[in-house]
Structure formats: structure tokens, C-alpha cells
Design a protein around this nucleic acid. Structure first.
Lengths: 356, 356
DNA sequence: ATAGACCATTAGAGCGCTCTAACCCACGGC
DNA sequence: GCCGTGGGTTAGAGCGCTCTAATGGTCTAT
């Protein structure tokens, strides 16, 4: 009786919007209390089989669906982790997100994906959204945040940077970018190259580590005097200018290590346009081992990162921090490995000759 | 006084979790009522400047942040549209999502991105999540849903299929896939090809239309008797088997039209492995004009789709339906165009010769 | 002076759910 | 016959917010 009255009142109040059935409606129909419906919905074991069935039937008949915001409000928990992706167009990031999502799902967490679209401002807005939405943890996939901003963020919410730099004061999951870059240089050096230039990643998160690895790799190989870093970027189009610069000098380098595969692909384009055969006149190494590097026509020598594992590890780290409340700083560094394909060979002998 | 008491009570009740400041706290600190804080937060014009400033200051001092679930519950609106992406690793989908997101943001909507990871089951779960979360509309980017399932869905929530088939009984935004396929065939036919085979898209949403376009294109060119469709897929790896089949016959076709760029790239790989030079011995056309087709080393002739515009249009369509409450079925078909690059040329004369 | 109009402000109910504490009703032990 | 005991069930407060209707005050018109 009371139920009926309440419900009547509330539907009189209701104005626009969908008006989907509520727990009250289910309770009414099943002849039980609201609380019991809640117990059934949350799979509590202390409900008699008879009532459980009645409730489930009523729910099915009404097409009842729990209201997530209401549930989150009442629980004071969202069971959600926020994932901020730098750029949805880079398949590398897509793979990492897949990993995070898979691990989160295995632990009954859902994932709120937001897209920074390569702009720092949008990242800030995204974090604001995360915080308002009450995500319990945040994964930053290839972030453009400064160390300072991250410092402020981690106070509020557990967070982890995936595939970003390692210099932050927040937990990180990533490949050893520095080592990866060293591997690239080492590979080239072993082939006999000495004049190896680097196309850097501009404002990308991992740019600094890779460039550092390039430098240390060069030193290790005793090639310190040949260190040469050119402004690049993280997109294909960013390579053209740097390549032009490189080719403008009297005796260009014999090898190039590019920040990532996309940049390497762009470099390949430009070299081709300039009539410089790869690898015979110029060796080229990328980074990320995205599927494009495996395309036979590119067949790019590159550095592999275990993307899926990185994603899963990021989620695991976050969920552990959420459950034990700790905010311990963790550094997970996975091992990169070089994948040798067809864009590297011993250096040309003599000056750079162009086919056109 | 009353406020203080209430607040004391509620914080005594509070147990775990973050305990972020609420409107009540802000109201207390600013010496106003909860309702006034709400008005300020929602930028109501009917608040005195003095109080507004006081509220904003108190909010800033406390680090107040509106609680999204609470707000959504009270408003009975979420101002969110759900975006279900088939596959985050395909850059094509990433671009479409970018478009949706941009348009949604321009209209003060946020976007809940869920990833189907190429599995129908996950799509169903994702939609369930959308419905529980109370999204006001749903965009399905490259869905694997059946027409039936979509039919049921559109009753509940406005939805639009982007870059999917056009045969559904829900609104769609897409390229004219059929025309696109016809353009591909027409281009090949104009070059002199008659034996043109098609590698289809398997269970992909747009597979049927493209395959239909292939057939009608063949008919239009008077090549009906050469129609030949091979099982493909939507990933690079799916091409190998079909190519092997194709090459196994006594006199293989002179041209191939692949379902999408990824499949075309895979085909290119396999043809290369088999020693079949492209395009001299075999012409190849893809679909989507993703960035990989533009890579000089692939330089794939393909069909362009205006991805960003598709995304924006999808969002516009949904938002219109949300605001005027109509559920009118709309068909937006954008024009594809052929982008001729280097994987097509006149057919070989004589039998297929292999270089290895 | 008084009614009406208008403005900023507020009380308080309500959104749909969860969760604690209480309740009821066997049942068994004394 | 009375008192736990404990499992199934429920009342009711509370989560943080919005929104309607009401309040009180100032201002103008009468």
C-alpha cells in the first residue's frame, strides 16, 4: 500500500526523460521490499530461492535495469578506472588500452576512456572529468602532463603513467625506452655505422628517454662525436623537414634512428622521394613495432614493446593501489627487444648517391 | 546551525572512500544555502555577484568538485552519448571517434567510449553498460550487431550506426560503400582488367555492401562472368589464405579489390612473398584510405571515406534526435572517392609469371 | 501608506539506489 | 513455557545533487 502511494507520487512528479522502471516497481510487482530487490540484484546469498526467482521474474518482465549513477552515488564507489589516451589514431595506444580494459574487466571494473587528442589542454579537462566522475584510479597512456601536474594529481587519485616517461613521481609502466634506443644504436653500430642521426619525438612523453638512450648508446659505441639529434615529432608528417635537413648537408649520416614507427614511416617516404634507397644508402630504425612496421613493403627494423602486457600491468598496479589504499610509487619496466627487418644493413661506402 | 549538525552527522556516518567536499561544505563556508551553491555551479544568471564570488572562493578553497553521479541522478539526465567502437586498433575507427567526440564536446555532451574488441558478445555487454549508465544516445562505430538486435535497441535509445551497413532499420551515417566498391571496379575495368577478384570483409559490418558494389560494378562493366569473391576478413592476417587460393588456379585474376586497407596490405605482403609483382602482374585496390595506404612504400590505390565528417555527422544526428525527441530514421550517405596510387596499372599480358 | 511586482535566496522533497539496524519467526535447548 | 539463536526480510536514513515552490526584501506604482 505504502509502495503504491509512493510510486504514484513519484510518477506524478516525473516530467521529461525516459522513466525507466525502478527497484520500487520491481519490488511492488514481486511483492517484496525494495531492499530485497537490491539484495537479489547484488547476488546476495542470503535470499530464499523462492523470492529470488520472484524478483528476477518481475525484473525481467519490467525490463528493469539498475541505474548506474544512483548505484554509484549510494555506494560511494564507482568501480571505474579512467584511461586517458593521448591519441586514438595511433594503433600502439589502442593496443595498450585493450590490455588495460581486459585486465579491468577481469576484476569487475569498468573503464572510462577519454581522448586527449594530442593536446595538453584536453588532458587537463579529461582529468577534471575523471575526478568529477569519481574514477577510483587513472591510467595515463602516453600523457603530455608535466611532472608537476602529475604530482598534484597523484595526491587525489592513484595513477599510473603507461608508455610515458619514467621521470615522473608517479607509478609508471613502460618499456625501458632508454635501453630500447640503445639497442637500436647498438644494432646499427654493429653493422658498421658510425654517423647515426636521431629523429626525436618532440613533445611526446617518451621522447626524452629515447633520445637519452640514443646518446648513451652512441657513447657506449664510442660514437660520441657523431651524436646528431633532429627535431621530429610523433606523426608521420613530422619527418619530412628533418629528413630534408639531414640530406642537405655535404655528407649525410648513413643511418637514422626515428622516435617511433610512424615517424620512421614518414622518413621512409621522404627518403624515397629524395631518391635515397633504404637500406643500401641509408639505414632506418623505428620504435614500437606497430603492425605497420611488419608490413612487408615497409619491413621496418624496429624496437618491440609488449603492449598488451603493459596495459594489463598498468591495470593490475592501479587496482592493487585501490584495494590496499597504498600509494606506493612503482616502476614497472618491461624489456624491449629489437626486431630486425629490412631497413637496416651495413653503411654505404662513399658519398650518398641519389637515384633521382 | 542546522547545516553544521547535518554535516557532522554525515561525516560520522562516512566510512571508507575519499570523502570529498560536498555542496553542503561549500555552502557552509560561504555562508549561503546549498541551493545557492547549486545555482552558482550551474552558472545561473540570477545570483548576485557578491554571493557568487563568495561561493566560488569557498569552492576553490575546499577544492570542491561536483559529484557527477549525484548530479546525473538528480537531473535524470546524463548528457552523455555512448560510443561503441568495434576495434580500437584500426586507425580508421579512431578517426571516426575523434569526429564524434569533437562534435559532442561542441554541444556540451561527453562521450562514453566502449570497445567491442571485435566480438559480438562484448558489444552486447557494452550496450547493457550504456543503458545502465543512462546514455542518451548511442553511436555504433563498425558494429557487429544483427538487424534484429538493433531493432530492439533503437526502441530504448536513439542510436546511429556509423561506418556500418546501411541495411539496418536504424539511422546510419556512412559512405556509400556500394558506390565505393563500384568505383574501385570501374577504375580497374577502365585500366583494361576483366578478371577482377574480390577479397571480402567476412563478418564486418560493411562487408556486404562492398561485396554487393563489387558485383554490381562487375555487371555494369559487362564482366559478370568474372565475378569471383573470396573469403577475407578485416585484418591484415586474413588475406594470406585467400591470396594462396587465388594463385593456385591455373590462370589467376589480374586484379584484386580488397575489403579494406588492412586486408589489402596483407594481400600485398602475401603477393610479394609469392613473387607476384604489384601492380605489373597484379593490380590491387583497398578501401578506407587509412594513413597506411598513403605510405609511399605501399602507395595503395584505395577508396577514401571522410572519417571526421562522418563522426561529426553521427553526433549531430544523435543530438538532434535527443533534443526533439523524434526517432526518425535517417540515412546519411557521404560520397566516397577513389584515390589512385601505385598499386594499379593495366593488366599483365599473358600468364602470371612469378619472380620467385 | 499599500498593493503588486520582482528579485535574490532558501527550504525541502525527491532522484534510485545501498546498507545498517531492527524485526519477525521458526527452531532447539533448558 | 521461555529464552536465545540465526536466517530471511524490511524500514528508513542517507548518498550529493537539482528543482519547485515559497520566503523575505526592495522597489515602483498607486
Amino acid at each position: 500500500m505504502v509502495y503504491r502511494a509512493e510510486r504514484a507520487m513519484s510518477s506524478a512528479t516525473a516530467t521529461v526523460a525516459v522513466n525507466r522502471p525502478t527497484m520500487q516497481d520491481v519490488a511492488l510487482r514481486a511483492g517484496v521490499s525494495r531492499a530485497l530487490v537490491s539484495l537479489v540484484m547484488n547476488k546476495s546469498p542470503r535470499v530464499s530461492d523462492q523470492k529470488r526467482r520472484a524478483v528476477l521474474r518481475a525484473a525481467a518482465e519490467l525490463g528493469y535495469r539498475p541505474n548506474l549513477p544512483a548505484r554509484q552515488l549510494a555506494r560511494r564507489r564507482t568501480h571505474t578506472i579512467g584511461v586517458l589516451v593521448d591519441n586514438l589514431r595511433n594503433p600502439f595506444f589502442g593496443e595498450v588500452v585493450d590490455g588495460i580494459e581486459a585486465e579491468a574487466a577481469d576484476n569487475d571494473y569498468s573503464v572510462l576512456i577519454l581522448n586527449g587528442r594530442r593536446e595538453a589542454q584536453r588532458e587537463i579537462e579529461a582529468v577534471e572529468t575523471f575526478l568529477q566522475a569519481g574514477v577510483e584510479a587513472i591510467a595515463l597512456v602516453g600523457t603530455r602532463f608535466s611532472a608537476d601536474e602529475l604530482d598534484r594529481l597523484r595526491v587525489t587519485t592513484p595513477c599510473v603513467v603507461v608508455a610515458g616517461g619514467a621521470s615522473y613521481s608517479v607509478s609508471t609502466v613502460g618499456t625501458d625506452d632508454r635501453l630500447g634506443a640503445e639497442l637500436a644504436v647498438q644494432h646499427l653500430a654493429a653493422l658498421g655505422h658510425s654517423r647515426i642521426s636521431h629523429l626525436d619525438g618532440g613533445r611526446s612523453a617518451t621522447a626524452e628517454q629515447r633520445s637519452r638512450g640514443y646518446r648513451s648508446g652512441m657513447k657506449l659505441a664510442g660514437l660520441e662525436q657523431f651524436i646528431d639529434v633532429r627535431g621530429g615529432g610523433d606523426q608521420e608528417a613530422d619527418a619530412a623537414e628533418a629528413i630534408d635537413e639531414l640530406l642537405a648537408v655535404s655528407d649525410p649520416p648513413t643511418a637514422i634512428f626515428a622516435f617511433n614507427d610512424l615517424l620512421a614511416a614518414g622518413a621512409l617516404n621522404r627518403l624515397d622521394e629524395a631518391g635515397v634507397p633504404v637500406p643500401s644508402a641509408m639505414s632506418l630504425v623505428g620504435f614500437d613495432n606497430t603492425f605497420i612496421s611488419a608490413l612487408r613493403h615497409l619491413s621496418l627494423t624496429t624496437i618491440n614493446q609488449p603492449t598488451l602486457a603493459m596495459g594489463r600491468l598498468a591495470a593490475t598496479t592501479l587496482l592493487a593501489q585501490v584495494s590496499d589504499g597504498s600509494r606506493e610509487l612503482q616502476r614497472h619496466t618491461l624489456q624491449p627487444e629489437i626486431v630486425v627487418r629490412s631497413t637496416t644493413c651495413p653503411p654505404r661506402t662513399g658519398p650518398l648517391t641519389r637515384t633521382r
